[in-house]
């Protein structure tokens, strides 16, 4: 009886460990490819060649870079707070990894489906700002501290519009569970929240807000004022090298994939195929595989879109960034919330 229980517990733990490792490997591989793709895309947009020497077409470039990072000396500046300096990269990296738990990669392909999935996502990703602040402060360097300070005010300012934008599809669907939000968008491209124009015309506004605020939340150009290399050297991670720097780097790219996954899940139908005949008639394992393909395809389009934005737009100033959030995005988000709430209560067909 006791042995039975222990075996069950062991199996359960084993399952959790396997899922954690699979997610981690997926994250590493995705980031390796995203870094390469980013350098290719930016090179194309700036009429350069980009990495093309290491391996065929340069595909081994980021693997080589990663190898170089592992070999680098792990430097802790003598004025730094050793403990905080060491744990800061972990505080940034762990939330970026934990959010993958609830992402619905395909039909039945969620590590753990939570009925509060969307709040879990925004709650967990809000932790990483503490890591950024700690990293900047512990480095004992004025560029790092300035970067951390900017980062804190930026992330606080943009968390509110992100959540306001994410609430809109939640209100329309009536569920916080990401899987339910996706399954409510099945049946073709005109059922996706973004293109569901016969339903509620304010959804595209929420989509736009989520992309703008999300780009600021994940700290990429044009909103990368906390790293701003022309002003702050490298911002909060100026003093970092080797593995610790690699963790910051990994978290940043993992977050940009997460943003794509959130946008795709909430507005672009998640893992649903764009037309019913493109996989909607399948069931079971076959549909899981097809839906995984569609989810990845849409996410990569979103990732490419983010790369396009970050390679073409100039960096905003600190005050412009603050004004955009507090004076434009948050009021628009509140009005949108009010209107959508009224629509759901009074007019929405049940």
């Amino acid at each position: 009886m006791e042995l039975d229980l222990l075996i069950k517990l062991g199996l359960e733990l084993g399952k959790i460990v396997v899922i954690a490792i699979v997610v981690l490997i997926f994250m590493m591989v995705a980031v390796l490819y995203m870094v390469l793709k980013l350098r290719w895309v930016i090179a194309r947009i700036q009429s350069r060649l980009g990495p093309n020497r290491t391996g065929p077409w340069g595909v081994l470039q980021t693997a080589a870079d990663a190898l170089k990072l592992f070999q680098k000396e792990d430097i802790i500046p003598c004025g730094a707070d050793k403990w905080l300096f060491t744990i800061a990269p972990a505080i940034v990296f762990i939330p970026a990894y934990l959010v993958y738990v609830v992402v619905p990669f395909g039909s039945g392909l969620t590590a753990q489906s939570l009925n509060v999935g969307i709040i879990y996502l925004s709650a967990i990703s809000s932790i990483s700002v503490i890591g950024i602040i700690v990293a900047g402060w512990a480095s004992n360097n004025k560029w790092s501290l300035l970067g951390a300070f900017r980062g804190a005010s930026q992330l606080i300012a943009y968390e509110v519009p992100t959540i306001l934008a994410m609430i809109i599809p939640v209100l329309i669907t009536g569920s916080l569970d990401l899987n339910e939000i996706v399954s409510s968008q099945g049946g073709g491209i005109w059922h996706w929240n973004l293109f569901h124009l016969s339903g509620w015309p304010m959804l595209p506004l929420a989509f736009l807000m989520l992309i703008i605020a999300g780009l600021a939340e994940i700290n990429v150009a044009p909103f990368d004022i906390m790293e701003a290399e022309s002003e702050l050297v490298a911002g909060f991670n100026t003093e970092y090298s080797g593995m610790k720097f690699a963790l910051f780097f990994l978290a940043e790219f993992a977050e940009s994939f997460t943003l794509s996954a959130i946008v795709v899940t909430l507005f672009l139908g998640g893992y649903q195929p764009p037309l019913h005949i493109l996989g909607g008639q399948l069931t079971g394992l076959a549909f899981s595989a097809v839906s995984l393909f569609w989810f990845m395809f849409k996410c990569w389009l979103m990732v490419l879109f983010i790369m396009w934005v970050r390679s073409t737009l100039p960096r905003v100033r600190v005050d412009q960034l603050m004004n955009l959030s507090w004076k434009a995005l948050i009021p628009a988000g509140l009005v949108n919330l009010l209107l959508t709430g009224a629509y759901v209560v009074f007019w929405m067909p049940k």
Binding site: I119, A123, S126, I127, V129, I130, I133, L145, L155, I156
Partner: peptide
Amino acid sequence: FLAVVQVMIYVGAITTMIILAVF
């Protein structure tokens, strides 16, 4: 629900606010 809201409000916002005030 209470658990994730606790993380979002207290860990994500309040702690960050306190650290900002310290700065």
